[in-house]
Simulated scan of single mutants.
Amino acid sequence: MRLLHTSDWHLGRAFHRVNMLGAQAAFIGHLVTTVREREVDAVVVSGDVYDRAVPPLAAVELFDDALHRLADLGVPTVMISGNHDSARRLGVGAGLIGRAGIHLRTDPAAAGTPVVLEDAFGEVALYGLPYLEPALVKDEFAVEKAGHESVLAAAMDRVRADLAARPRGTRSVVLAHAFVTGGEPSDSERDITVGGVASVPAGVFDGVDYTALGHLHGCQTLTERVRYSGSPLPYSFSESEHRKTMWLVDLDADGGIGAERIDCPVPRPLARVRGPLAQLLTDPALARHEDAWVEATLT
């Protein structure tokens, strides 16, 4: 089964007060084209679809357009809510939208209930774990201490229990929105620290074939089976060295993983320069940054 893993669209977000909606629309177009041309079997979107709980109307319209275009392709899509999303708002109409093949997973209580897809080798169970705010889901998962690791571990226990009850050979994919130990943050993620601890170990996700992570904005491989797609666009100058991509993941008959990075459109490159003003204005070596967004530190 071929999956396209993306996350952190942050629809409605600006870059230093520059409207990014046009660039976000170009990314959606690129996503749809990739799904069609690379014969993708399912799309997974690992949270932070919107940039804020109550997004601007233009962002909602772009999301609506994305849903329709993906549904028209007949390719199933699984989405979870992230820490920037309002889970309840994003999940409105999820039952009806699911009939069109767009599966919104925003309810923590449904963490152990997968979207089950099928290919020539059998079933693939996709489990959507929305962002789990520890204080809000502590009772749902019956954990003594409200922490990121404890609630995610409890959610994964439900995943493994459901998977164990399925036919032997069922492959598994988990979507999660979290700060996993070993990941490299940037300046544009919202802090999710609880009690001084924000990260969870990658071992929390042991037992599944692929974990599609969201939250950190840089594309990263923590293990062969645990990866961040990163955001499709930069949202801070700390991302100036990022290569913005999606993961094209091939899941074979035995759950083996093959992964390829698919580049996203670059609306304008970022550059960070440092030096005296006169040098920055006259240095011919900086001419390559004339079309970039520039962060200049004057010494």
Rank of each mutant, 00 (worst) to 15 (best):
R99E: 12
T113I: 12
A111W: 03
H148N: 12
I28M: 13
R89V: 02
V44Y: 06
I80P: 11
E123F: 05
V45H: 05
D107Y: 00
V54L: 15
E140S: 10
Y127H: 12
V78R: 05
T113K: 14
A154Y: 02
V75D: 07
V49L: 14
V92H: 09
V32N: 13
I97A: 13
P55V: 03
H84E: 03
G82A: 04
A71P: 12
V32T: 13
H84Y: 04
K145R: 15
A87H: 14
S150G: 00
A94W: 10
D51I: 00
L117D: 04
S46C: 12
K138W: 00
L117V: 14
S86G: 11
T33V: 01
G147S: 15
D107F: 00
I102M: 06
L96R: 10
A125T: 07
I80S: 08
A110W: 00
V60K: 10
S81H: 05
D65V: 04
G29T: 04
V116A: 10
V92T: 12
V32H: 13
R36C: 02
D41N: 14
E39L: 11
D51L: 00
A155P: 08
S86P: 11
A142Y: 00
A58G: 09
A109G: 12
R69N: 09
L136H: 11
S81Y: 01
H103F: 14
K138Q: 15
H103E: 09
S150C: 00
A42F: 05
G82H: 01
D72G: 07
I80A: 07
V43G: 11
A58R: 14
A66G: 07
A120K: 12
L132T: 06
Y50W: 11
S86H: 06
G98L: 04
P130T: 04
S86Y: 01
K145A: 13
R36S: 13
E149P: 08
L104R: 12
A87F: 01
D85A: 03
A110N: 04
G101S: 10
E39P: 00
T34G: 11
A146R: 12
S150I: 00
P108D: 07
